[in-house]
Design a protein around this nucleic acid. Structure first.
Lengths: 203, 203
DNA sequence: CAACCGATTGACTGGTCAGTCAGCCAGCGA
DNA sequence: TCGCTGGCTGACTGACCAGTCAATCGGTTG
């Protein structure tokens, strides 16, 4: 037939992933049972295992999907010749905060269950996570080489401080430790960059 | 009798707590069974329940024991009239890094299982954790009031950035993402403070 | 010595899930 | 109409483990 007026094949795999985001965000990975995911997706228990090898694989998929975007964004920012090192860092921060604004539940899951869960899933994904730190450190190192940043603070050290500050702020919003007005989200990238860079730049 | 030459009553409770630190650090809280703690302590399974209401209570005890020291240290630093706001922050950072040098396993457990596990134990201890952030923010706010720090960055925001940077560095050391020479530990407090404060201080 | 009591022991139970699997059913081609 | 295929179903099982508890031990008191 020429066109299909019925609902599209309703990608059940995607349905399950999206449901998992909601449930993981609500209850945390450890206290959600596979049945919760299936229920939330309106799908039979067994179907989860049709599309995924295990409960873990669902979370792994969610993480990898999103983290690869982050890695791309960082490396792309670094490659941009038009930007100075400070602007590159601001771009990175902007991307992360924007990711949170766009899909807070997914970012909550990634941060809480993977990035900050270095003992469980963080372990598995350490190489990917590390690549983000390294890419940021590269931006810093280039800034130091060009003289835009002071050289007496190790680039890895600065990278960890920068990323740590960002993640802590996100955690603060996620758990209502600090109020999260939309304007805060907008200013955030400017403010973290100011906080960190005005210390990194030589005076 | 005048003195007791026999081994002292061998505080089993303490023995269990110390064993728990080692096991939690090694395997993580979720994948240690109560039997592991008992074995590590060289004590019968049931004795753990003689001294603690549950497995959770063991971790809670470890956290509270240490976190109260941190809170005291922050508040004491703040009270010291001899120190400027920057020196106060450096003292706080120094205390945390020193705690890690003194007992890396305990700090690993606290950070990985509580502080950065906002979904599970972090939830329970949010009020205590928050108190640390607030105390640091108070130091920043006083610095702003005195003109030592710039006023255009929210004190809570700065506090989270500062603490986040510290914790991320610790995580980096804990998981071998960045090399942890002893000299790094010593310099760390100076460097984080420099990174953050030279951005907070007005120019 | 006997009664007592808190510390200590470890076998056992109840409940919880992740993952399996035997089949069901809708659509399609012959 | 009759297989056939593969997405889909959900009851079931095996493993695992936190927490219980009845029994034992060792020291103390009267």
């Amino acid at each position: 037939m020429a066109f299909n007026p019925k609902a599209p094949p309703a990608d059940k795999r995607r349905l399950i992933l999206d449901a998992a985001i909601r449930v993981f965000a609500r209850q945390g990975f450890h206290s959600t049972r596979v049945a919760d995911i299936a229920d939330e997706a309106g799908v039979a228990y067994g179907l989860v295992y049709h599309y995924f090898k295990s409960k873990d694989e669902v979370l792994n998929e969610l993480f990898s999907e999103r983290w690869s975007l982050l890695l791309t964004a960082i490396e792309q920012a670094d490659r941009s010749d038009a930007l100075g090192p400070r602007a590159k860092l601001e771009t990175v921060a902007g991307f992360i905060f924007e990711s949170y604004r766009h899909d807070p539940e997914l970012m909550k899951v990634i941060i809480v269950e993977v990035t900050r869960a270095a003992n469980s899933f963080g372990r598995t994904h350490l190489p990917e996570i590390r690549r983000a730190y390294d890419s940021i450190a590269k931006i810093v190192a280039e800034g130091q080489a060009s003289g835009a940043f002071r050289g007496d603070i190790d680039a890895d050290f600065a990278s960890m401080s920068f990323y740590g500050a960002i993640e802590q702020l996100l955690s603060g919003w996620i758990f209502d430790l600090i109020p999260a007005a939309d304007s805060d989200l907008e200013q955030a990238k400017t403010l973290v960059t100011a906080t960190i860079c005005d210390g990194l730049e030589p005076r």
